[in-house]
Nucleic acid binder design. Sequence first.
DNA 1: CGGCTCTTTGACCTTGCTCAATTCGCGTGG
DNA 2: CCACGCGAATTGAGCAAGGTCAAAGAGCCG
Lengths: 240, 240
Amino acid sequence: MNKNPLIAYMEQRDRLSAEEREVIESCVHDVVELPAGADIVQEGARPTRSCLMLSGLSARYHLMSDGGRQISAFHIAGDFIDLHSLLLGRMDHAVGAITPVRIATVPHEYLRGLTNTHPHLTRLFWLSTLIDAAIHRRWLMANGGLDSVGRVAHLVCEMYSRMRVVGLCEGNSFRLPISQNVLADAVGLSVVHVNRTVQRLRRTRYLHWQGDMVEILDFDGLAGLAEFDPSYLNLEPEAR
Amino acid sequence: MNKNPLIAYMEQRDRLSAEEREVIESCVHDVVELPAGADIVQEGARPTRSCLMLSGLSARYHLMSDGGRQISAFHIAGDFIDLHSLLLGRMDHAVGAITPVRIATVPHEYLRGLTNTHPHLTRLFWLSTLIDAAIHRRWLMANGGLDSVGRVAHLVCEMYSRMRVVGLCEGNSFRLPISQNVLADAVGLSVVHVNRTVQRLRRTRYLHWQGDMVEILDFDGLAGLAEFDPSYLNLEPEAR
DNA sequence: CGGCTCTTTGACCTTGCTCAATTCGCGTGG
DNA sequence: CCACGCGAATTGAGCAAGGTCAAAGAGCCG
């Protein structure tokens, strides 16, 4: 993965002109590294830059009054994690690094400038936030309508599908550096129950899940449990 | 409410030029009425027009394999219910009319044209989809981290806050034409449990809820149950 | 080795689900 | 005016998925 992951992300969805590729390339300028556990953006902040993930895993979350943490999305290389802060004033949630991350920070002025000069690129940026919203909807479906096994299976299917696009899979295997604690916060279950659910999932033989490594053995089987249909990820190139 | 509700929606978030107001006005052209229960957009469709709610209540939903329906958002006057179909190819969910609705349908070509000529308006359209996403996130928080009372209270707080903006409240009262069946599909609980939850909510004396009519008696009390903070709705005008 | 986080297990409890029946409001046809 | 039908609201009883508490392994790093 030498290629800029945002270009990979975009080209999975539409065709880019040479100039557009250059513009995107120029976004990767101010690169920052943060350790696992660090907050990339804090809830309530009013960022003046947006962050593009270059590597690692991060999560959007919100702290509940009982101390619990609810995760509403994971972000991997190629994801613009807080592009929405360009137009939304205050951050209504925080973004934290799950693993060590490398991110490029892009000034809002620069992005706003692009919206005045590059309509097509603007639509693609917009698109990426729309896909985020589609993912949120899917999580609502999964967390509201599936049992614990389905929820976890759904997350695995989604992360697998998204990681493939940006070249983070080897064959049917990928690293999912999500502890069961974090997993629990994402699917809205207790750690104990997540643990038992993962064990049940392993017993299905649809996947191997050992530590960080997940190998998909029967994607269709897994997708069946999760009622997973990847079309919400908009992985087909199309004129946008 | 003679005013175009989309203009009310936009002006709650930013200042509009006279020309922009005109452009928005011109979107309300092809008006359609649909009865309660009708599908406004079907899952899997590839719309060539987007729908703007003028009146009534609609819901985005997805049918689960067990026949259940998971609702991921409600839409009221002023909401662009499938603006995202402009850039996303296939609808990953359906939108159904909960009450009879009046909608304006706007051709995608027209909207796409605006993205080429009106950057500020484009940002505002983008903004409206970002607010939708913020609402999804909030629902994820509520449905994942609150008990049944909190979830229902959250929905009430949100609908109240949103309806006020577009002039659908009288004092502290508003119509919430959502049957307990529909409510159950939105908060991810069974009808029976929703019924008991609503009764518990009534006993708190934070609200009067009789049939369709909800009167908020103690918003802060309700917001406390729901951990509700309206800032995610971005109700403050700001240069975007 | 010691400390730390993550995983796993057991026992018991609670919230919310299912099934089934009753009631209520309201509009329609007789 | 009244019986009837129908969807929505309500209630009761028993069940089950998932939560809580507590403790024991496992893996990893200094």
